[in-house]
Design a protein around this nucleic acid. Structure first.
Lengths: 181, 181
DNA sequence: TTTTTTGTTAACAAATAGTTAACAGCTTGC
DNA sequence: GCAAGCTGTTAACTATTTGTTAACAAAAAA
């Protein structure tokens, strides 16, 4: 929780801003910022937001305890496969479950004609890169066709749906944040 | 920013908790929670954290969900390559830069004998999966050998160093959170 | 009906966020 | 030498406002 302090200082310095510069740009007192950066006081959400905007970050990234996971290897052979109820979709977890993880990496294998059922919708962001095959994604009313090597970054809150367009398998690395498994 | 209100109420009700129940479990007054849920006041970070813990969420998830990027495709041919000063390391960005992104996906191509220079060290977490070749990773005093299909999840704060062990190229998808580019 | 829930809201006290202003430590230049 | 800039820190204060107590109406349960 006191990451806030450390992170603000880190970001401010990374941008080469002095206390007084950041202060004048945010309308907050240099004194206040100093106190925040030293954990002597805790900013209100409004001021915090103010600072975040200037530092081009979000409150979440500043606060959410980046509590540490243990470093872990997961071998190809150890992957756990989740059988999706929709036909022909195999999802492998690329990590072992851990509440402190910030990302959930998945490996998708879509057999020919495989198609996700309902439109999914949650919070956070997602990224995927096509390693093999051809994928169609629908979100909102937009349709995207992705070939091998194409990648896609989007908000999980946008309803999304996907389909294998290739005659063979389509394979993807798909990362979700925050984890939902 | 007023998602907080809405989200807290949503989550509380989802768990079937009444105002007074949540209040007694968090040590906050029902009155206070009501005011928060109606946006009549803004909680301190401490109380907010308190509530989040009980609702099994994080401050970030409560606040930041409107930190949305625009959905974007990045084609294979559009990737920007960053030339690492160390010989034989090619890093391609798999997204276009955007301050609201929570993850930074990269594609690494390591030529034979390529080796990262200094030990890197920053904040956050990292994930990588080997798509081709053989990789050696050193973090702390541990050495890991990763083959095709193996994946690795670790804290960026642990100093890390890597090397291509294969006779050909080694290729990886590497995700860093929060973004550092 | 009465009783126990539900959530809302005045009125208040206590806490503290944020200010002003003065401080010491370092560079740069005259 | 010693000003005139910076840098960040901190004591003292006040003004805001967080969070409380307590009473409220509305609905559900007895």
């Amino acid at each position: 929780m006191q990451n806030i302090s450390v992170n603000i200082r880190r970001l401010r310095q990374k941008q080469g801003l002095s206390l007084r510069e950041l202060a004048s740009q945010t309308g907050i007192t240099p004194s206040m910022i100093s106190q925040i950066e030293n954990g002597k006081t805790s900013p209100s959400l409004a001021t915090l937001k103010n600072i975040c905007d200037k530092l081009e970050t979000t409150i979440g990234q500043l606060i959410d305890d980046k509590a540490s996971t243990s470093d872990q290897v997961l071998r190809l052979t150890e992957r756990k496969t989740m059988h999706q109820k929709e036909q022909g979709i195999y999802i492998e977890l690329l990590t072992t479950p851990d509440p402190y993880k910030q990302m959930e990496p998945l490996y998708f294998t879509l057999q020919p004609n495989a198609c996700s059922g309902n439109e999914y919708r949650h919070y956070g962001q997602e990224f995927l890169v096509v390693l093999k095959g051809k994928l169609e994604i629908l979100l909102n009313n937009n349709k995207y066709i992705l070939n091998k090597g194409d990648s896609f970054y989007f908000n999980s809150s946008t309803p999304h749906k996907y389909r294998n367009l290739s005659k063979g398998n389509t394979e993807l690395v798909w990362i979700v944040t925050p984890p939902s498994f």
